[in-house]
Design a protein around this nucleic acid. Sequence first.
DNA 1: TTGTAGGCGTTATCAA
DNA 2: TTGATAACGCCTACAA
Lengths: 329, 329
Amino acid sequence: MKDVARLAGVTIGTVSRYINGKSVKEKNRLCIEEAIQKTEFKLNHIARGLKTNMTKTIGVVVPDITSPYSGLLVETIDKYLYQQGYSIIICNTWGSEELEAKNIDLLLQRQIDGLILYPSGQKMSSLTYIPCDRIPVVVVDIGIAELQCDQVLLDNASAIYEAGVWLKSLNHRKIGIINGTLDYFTSGERFEGYKRFHEDYSMKLDKNIIHNIGYSQSSGYEAIQYMLQLENPPTAVIACNYDISVGVVNAINDIKIQVPEKLSLIGFDDLEIFSIIRPRMSMIAQPVVKMGEQAAKLLLKRIDKDFSGFPEIHRLKTELIIRETTRSI
Amino acid sequence: MKDVARLAGVTIGTVSRYINGKSVKEKNRLCIEEAIQKTEFKLNHIARGLKTNMTKTIGVVVPDITSPYSGLLVETIDKYLYQQGYSIIICNTWGSEELEAKNIDLLLQRQIDGLILYPSGQKMSSLTYIPCDRIPVVVVDIGIAELQCDQVLLDNASAIYEAGVWLKSLNHRKIGIINGTLDYFTSGERFEGYKRFHEDYSMKLDKNIIHNIGYSQSSGYEAIQYMLQLENPPTAVIACNYDISVGVVNAINDIKIQVPEKLSLIGFDDLEIFSIIRPRMSMIAQPVVKMGEQAAKLLLKRIDKDFSGFPEIHRLKTELIIRETTRSI
DNA sequence: TTGTAGGCGTTATCAA
DNA sequence: TTGATAACGCCTACAA
C-alpha cells in the first residue's frame, strides 16, 4: 500500500479510502488504479483484521469431513458463507472431545468471527470450552440442551415415528430398529420416536429386535444378521443412520434374503450414492442443505449483531421417501 | 497480552518471550502463567502473522469437496498439515476457472504460507494466476506441463494399460472404454494408456467402443447402454473414473445384463462405498492418501526453504484390484 | 534476564 | 477531499 501511495503521489490514507470504496478525487482514483496494477498490490487481509477485529473467517468444526453427510453439510455452509464474503476454516475432530476443544481454541486464536459446531462429544464438559460468550456460535445436528446458544437440529423423534407409522400401515407388527447408542443425542431422540410410536399404537417393545448399539457399518451388519436368525424375526427393520444403512445393505447382500419380499427396509440419509443398489432403498431423508444454510444464515445474523429470538432452536423435518424396499404384508 | 503483563507485574516483552518459549525467570514464569489463566488470554495469531509474515495457514483449492475422492484427499492433507501446526482454508471452484482465479486471489490476500491446487481448468490462462512465484505451490492430480512448480500426479496411462493387459490375459479382445474428454488432463493420459496397450498387443481400436465423453454418471450410463446394443458388443469395459463407474453400475442394474458372465467390468477409484454392490467390483485404486500426504509434505519442504530437486514431479502408481466383475472367456 | 521502543499493513480520527 | 498520525497485538533488537 505504501508503494501504491508513493507511485500514485498520494498518501497511504487516500489509498485506503479508495480501497474501501470511499470517494476519491477522480484524478487520484486513476493514479491509484494504475499504481495498483503496476505494483500488483494485494490487500493484506490479516493486517486489516488486526485493525477491524473482523477476519471474515468462520470456523467449522465437524467430526469427520469425509463422511458424505458432513461433507455435504460443510459444502453448503461454505457456499452460503462464501457468497457473503466469508471463508471457512474446517477442523476435523475424529469424534474426540479433546481434539474438539483443542481445535476450537486454535480457531479462537485465529480470531474467527463465528463458529459452526457439529459436536463430537456428549459430555457436559463440552460446555466449558464452547465459546458462546465470546463469539456467535451455532450448534448443528447434536443438540446441547444446557447451552445458551443457537442450534439447528433434526426432528429425530418424528423421523422414526413416521417411518413406523408407514410400516404399520403396511401391516408390519414386528418392526426392528438398529440405532446408535442411547447416550448419543440423535440416537437417543430417534429411539424416543420409536418408543412413542409403539405406545401410541399399542405395540409391545421386543428387545430382541431393538439394537441401540452404535452408528457404524458393523453395527448394522451384525444386528441385522442377529435379528434374521431369530425364531420370530422382524418383518421390517429401520436403520437409523448412514453407516448402519450401509452395513445392513452389506449383510443383505451376503445372506441373500429377499427384500422386500421377506423383509422391508428403511434406511437413513438419502445420499445420492445409494442409487447404485437394487432394489432402490426406501429412506428417511435429512434436509442437509437446508440445515447448512440455516446454520450459516443464523450465524451471520448474530455476527451482524441481530440477537432477536436468541437462542433460536430450529427443528427440521425429515422426509420419508418410499421406494422399493418396503412392501405390504 | 497487555493485561497479562500488568497482572504479572512484568512488561509485555517478557510475556511475549514466555509465550515463545524463551527463558524467563522462574518467579516471573509463575506470575505470568497465573495471569494467563486469570485473564483467559489467547494469543492473537493474526497479529503474530502480521509481524512474522507467517500465518501457518495453507490454502487448498479443489473442484468439489463433496466428491468422495477429493473429500478424502483434502482430509489427508488437513491431517498431515494439522500435525505440523498448520490449518487449511478450503475453496471450492465447482470446476470454474474463473472461481479458481478468484479464490486464489482471496487466499493470497489472506497471506497463506502455501497453496495446494487441484486445478479445475486446462486452459493456459491458468498459468497467469497461479502464484508459483510468490509462495510455494503444489499442484495435484491435474498436471500443468508448462508450469514450473511441484506436482503430484497419478500414472494415468499405466493405470489403464495394466487393466487392459489383465483383461487380455482373460482372453478379452474387445475391451471398451468410457472416459472423460480428451482435452482433460487425466482422461487424455488414460486414453493414451489405452491406445498404447492396443498398439503393444497389436489390437485394433474400435471407435464404437471408445467413449471419451466426460467424467459423469450420465456418461457412464449412456455409453454402456450404447455399447451393449451393438451388433458386436465389447466383452469387457473399463470405466475411467468414479462418476462413470457409478453410472455404469446404475445402467447394469437397469438393463440387467449378467456381470461378469456376459460382461467384465473394471471401475476406477476404489472407494469404500462400492462395497455395497454385488458382485464386488474390480477396481483401479488410486493412492489417494499417499497423494495427499506427499503433496502436503512437499509443500512444507518448500515452505521450510528447502528447494532441492525443484520442481519435483511425482507420478504415483495405481493398483489394480481384482474382485468379482472380471472373468475369463 | 528484562524493559523500551519501533515496526508489520491496515483503518480511523482530526485538522487542514 | 486529503494528509498526518495514532492505534490494533505482537515480535525483536538494543540497551540496561
